[in-house]
């Protein structure tokens, strides 16, 4: 009869367990501190990314075919809606241009080159998503060679979706805003509603309702439903003024002591193909 725990197997098991815990602890610590992983790990990641790139071309092609048929059906309604929007956009564009110019002049005059709203942009495509049901991460096809650094913010056209958590040479990992693991650092946000804006941190994500939770509020007060939530730029990591979502309500937290604001994220983190990575100059 074969014994499940022969002494040899037991030794192997214990060694594996110790190694596993050591490796998890070690690499988790490296991941927190440094942007780039160890050299060997980086080579592996880049090679795997290359393979993924080859596969993702036909795979994304198939996806696009499905997507475009869906788009075709929506086109008519969308067109009508967009027509009404175009005029407004043009007006805003002109105004933006003027404001931008004025802003630059004022900055020059004040010698303020590094303000919170000045940032660089890199566009990237999403290659894959972490196949895990306790972690929400994307892998994008630009890395340190394109100028991406750790902790840069990642946005789609509708709003903030996450931040760069690891940078390799040719690809990097994005920690989504909905991923609020212990090691994930929170986003500093504020509600732009009242005269004195309420600041706080994105502290969690309600998977069932698809809502973000904003905790650590600076002040209590009535906050209107539907008011906009932006990044506050506090902490110096995330640029100021990136759109996060709209308020859906205020509720008590699980521990019953403080309040939290529930936010409907502007960008759908379940459906991202192209992102823009934003970082301060």
């Amino acid at each position: 009869m074969h014994k499940i725990f022969s002494s040899r197997n037991l030794v192997i098991l214990v060694i594996c367990l110790v190694l596993s815990i050591g490796l998890i602890g070690g690499t988790a610590a490296i991941r927190d501190k440094k942007g780039t992983p160890t050299f060997i790990q980086m080579i592996g990641n880049d090679v795997a990314g290359l393979g993924q790139r080859i596969v993702s071309v036909p795979a994304n092609g198939v996806e696009k075919i499905f997507g475009s048929t869906k788009d075709l059906i929506n086109t008519y309604h969308e067109n009508n809606y967009l027509k009404s929007k175009v005029q407004k956009v043009q007006a805003t564009d002109v105004r933006n241009h003027a404001l931008n110019k004025e802003n630059q002049q004022l900055k020059q005059q004040l010698d303020l080159n590094k303000t919170l709203t000045g940032y660089t942009k890199v566009n990237a495509a999403v290659m894959s998503r972490t196949p895990s049901n306790w972690q929400q991460q994307l892998i994008i096809n630009k890395g340190s060679m394109a100028g991406i650094k750790k902790n840069m913010s990642v946005i789609v056209n509708k709003g903030l979706v996450g931040r760069i958590s690891e940078v390799n040479k040719t690809n990097s990992k994005v920690e989504l805003i909905t991923d609020s693991g212990d090691s994930a650092s929170s986003f500093a946000v504020q509600v732009d509603d009242k005269k004195t804006p309420v600041s706080g941190l994105i502290s969690g994500y309600n998977n069932a309702k698809n809502e973000l939770e904003m905790g650590s509020l600076t002040s209590k007060g009535k906050i209107k439903r539907g008011s906009k939530v932006m990044t506050s730029g506090l902490g110096g990591v995330t640029p100021q003024g990136l759109f996060v979502g709209t308020v859906t309500g205020v509720s008590g937290t699980a521990n019953g002591i403080s309040e939290q604001i529930n936010i409907k994220p502007a960008a759908d983190t379940r459906n991202i193909d192209v992102v823009t990575v934003v970082g301060k100059d």
């Binding site: 490796l23 998890i24 070690g26 690499t27 790990q41 592996g44 895990s132 972690q135 892998i139 958590s165």
Partner: peptide
Amino acid sequence: SYYIGVIGI
């Protein structure tokens, strides 16, 4: 390394 970001799981 590639998907999770932490080795050893």
